[in-house]
Design a protein around this nucleic acid. Structure first.
Lengths: 139, 139
DNA sequence: CTTGATGCAAATGGTTTGCATGTTT
DNA sequence: AAACATGCAAACCATTTGCATCAAG
């Protein structure tokens, strides 16, 4: 898994270093969770205490450029990152903060109408839609 | 127009000050354009040179709380703001940077399915969807 | 006159960068 | 060996905050 990703990295002309392997391992272990650069650093350091926060940022940039991961900039909070394989979207409740993961398919009809009406090929890596969840909207 | 908005501000328990009037004037004059705090300050200062950037931020916070405007956090770039009356969404081309304004109605079916499937009442103040515009996707 | 708003300067927090050194290819 | 990645410290930039002063109700 991680080795496959590293191969893809190399194929895109980048080097496979310890830091990059470590970051990918943490991301794979996290499943489809979203990790901030800071949290990622904390976890990477469990095994590699010397790896620096700035390296994590540069690594994330390299991995994103190679198309292996996607940054998910939330409003305010620090940007989080997840593997490209786990593309999904979010519904976030503005009252309680609950988040619902949504499959890419929820955007199917939106994409269709953007294409039909504007010739726009939507390729949303990550989308956050705000609103109120079932329990908060009941209140 | 601006006076109506100021009334609404007062009704929500906030004070109608010079700074707030000035910000509203600039926003109204900007139409549905999106202005960053910095750009807003530049424009406000044309008439009121003493108004400070931090006041603009506090003003924006007050106006947002009163429901008069909406912050639109773009990826990376500084957050921009527009009047609540001009709610709309964006499609941004990742190649050329072109942006298309979209009416709220483009989200109708998405909202319907979120409600049906998750009991989630979507109320997106602002959404940015990435992809490639007609001309760039042709290339 | 009381409470909230403003100006200013200084702090914050996430992210980026310059540079000397270490590692991958 | 050459090119690129890393650690570190310092810079950056948008935004926030403490505090003394000022203005709106």
């Amino acid at each position: 898994m991680v080795e496959d990703l590293l191969d893809e990295l190399r194929r895109s002309g980048q080097r496979a270093t310890t830091a990059r392997r470590a970051v990918l391992e943490v991301l794979v272990a996290a499943g489809d969770g979203h990790l901030s650069a800071d949290e990622l650093t904390r976890r990477v350091r469990a095994d590699h205490p010397a790896i620096h926060l700035s390296t994590i940022y540069r690594t994330l940039e390299a991995l994103a450029e190679a198309g292996l991961l996607t940054p998910a900039p939330f409003a305010d909070q620090p940007t989080t990152y997840h593997l490209r394989a786990d593309v999904h979207h979010h519904a976030v409740c503005t009252d309680c903060g609950a988040t619902i993961n949504l499959p890419p398919s929820v955007l199917a009809s939106l994409r269709r109408s953007l294409l039909a009406d504007h010739g726009f090929h939507a390729d949303p890596h990550h989308l956050t839609i705000t609103g109120r969840c079932r329990s908060c909207s009941g209140a």
